[in-house]
Simulated assay, not measured.
Amino acid sequence: MYGQVAAVEDLSLTVHRGEFLTILGPSGSGKTTALMLLAGFVAPTKGDILIAGKSVAAVPSYRRDQGIVFQSYALFPHLTVRRNLEFPLEMRGMKAADRTTRVDRILERVHLKEFSGRMPSQLSGGQQQRVALARALIADPPILLLDEPLGALDRNLREQMQGEIKSLHREFGKTTICVTHDQDEALTLSDRIVVMRAGRIEQSDSPEALYDRPATRFVANFLGEANILDNPGFAVDSDATQPSGTMAMIRPERICVAAPTAPKRVDADKRQFIAGIVSDMIYAGPLRKYQVRVGCTVLTVREHVASGQEIFRPGDNVRIDWLRSDVRFVAV
C-alpha cells in the first residue's frame, strides 16, 4: 500500500526453479513494486513471500541471497571493475586467492578481462551492464532479479545485450525474474511472461501463447499490434464460435494485401477476402505497414519487404485476406 492506494493487489505467483520469468506492464501497473517486494526493499502489508518454501517476508534484502541488477547499474564509481566484482565476495568473507580466481573466471565469461582495471566512467553502457550482471552473478545466488536492465541502452546495444542475458541464463541456470515495459525484450528473453495491469495479473503464459492467444483486449494491444474488430461493419468469419462478451482480433502480420485482380492463394477456401482502400503506407526497413480502410474500419497490415513485391500507395484499391483460423477472440 502507498497511502490508500494498493500498488499490488491479490498477487499470487509461483516462479519455477531455473525459469526466466518477466513481469511486463505499463507505468503504474505494479510490476516494479512486485520486484521490490521480492527483493526485500518493500515490505508487504499483508500476505507472504516464500522462497524454497520458507517465508522471507520479514527477512531484510541483504539476507535473501539474491543477485540484483538495476537500470542505473548501481556500480561503485570509485572502484575499478575488478574491485566492483570483488566487493560482494569480500562481504561474504571469501579468501583473497579464491576471490581472484572467481573474478577472473567471470570477467572472462562477460568478455571484460582487459577492462578489469578501468573505472565505470571509462566504460560504455553495454560494458557497464555486463559488469552489473557479473556482479549480480559472482556470489552464485540462486535467484537473479533484473529491474529494467536494458532501459538505458540504445536499440542496437539493447538487442545485443538481450542475447548476452539469454546466454548467461542458459549457462548459469539461475531462477531469473525481470521487470520491463519493453514488449520485444519480454518476448525475446522469457520462458514465461506475466502481464500486469492496475496492480493485478491480467494474464500469465509463455511468450508464444500470450502473443498468439491473448485473453483480453488490453493484453492484445499491449503485447504487439492488434486489429480489434469491434463492430467493423462487415461479418468476421472464423473457424471458432465467438464467445459472448468478446471481440474478434487479428494480428497485422496475419493479413495479406494484394491487388484486386491478383490470383488468389491455393488455400483460398480457408480465407476471408475483403476489398479496401489504402489510406497510408509506412516503410520501416525490413517491414512495410499499410493502413487499409474497409468501410468504417481501418485495419493495419504488416508485411516483410521482399524483392519484386507490389507496393501500394494511399488511394489504391486493394484486396486483403486472412486465414479464418487466425482470428482470435479477446475479452473486453
Rank of each mutant, 00 (worst) to 15 (best):
Y2W: 05
V8L: 06
E9C: 05
D10C: 07
L13S: 06
T14Y: 00
G18D: 13
G18P: 10
T32H: 04
M36Q: 15
L38H: 12
A39D: 06
K46M: 06
I49R: 07
A58C: 09
D65W: 03
F70N: 02
Q71Y: 00
Y73G: 07
V81C: 01
N84G: 02
N84C: 09
E86T: 10
E86N: 06
P88G: 00
E90W: 01
M91D: 08
M91Y: 08
M94L: 15
A96T: 11
D98L: 08
R102M: 13
K113E: 14
K113P: 00
F115D: 06
S116D: 14
R118N: 07
Q127V: 10
Q128T: 06
R130P: 05
V131N: 04
V131G: 02
A132D: 11
R135P: 12
L137W: 02
L137N: 10
D140W: 03
I143N: 11
I143T: 12
L145Y: 04
L145H: 03
D147E: 09
P149Y: 12
A152D: 12
N156C: 00
G163M: 11
K166S: 14
F172V: 09
K174Q: 09
C178D: 02
D182Q: 04
D184E: 15
E185K: 03
A186G: 10
T188H: 07
L189D: 09
D191K: 03
I193M: 11
M196V: 12
R200A: 02
R200Q: 11
R200W: 02
S206M: 09
L210G: 06
R213T: 07
R213K: 12
A215F: 04
V219Q: 06
A220C: 10
L223D: 05
G224C: 14
E225T: 10
A226Y: 11
N227W: 07
N227P: 10
P232F: 14
V236Y: 09
Q242V: 02
P243F: 05
M249D: 08
P252S: 13
E253M: 09
A259M: 03
D267V: 03
A275P: 00
P286Q: 12
Y290G: 08
V294I: 15
G295K: 08
T297H: 07
V298C: 03
S307G: 03
Q309T: 11
P314E: 02
R319Q: 15
R319E: 15
W322K: 01
L323R: 01
A331V: 14
V332W: 03
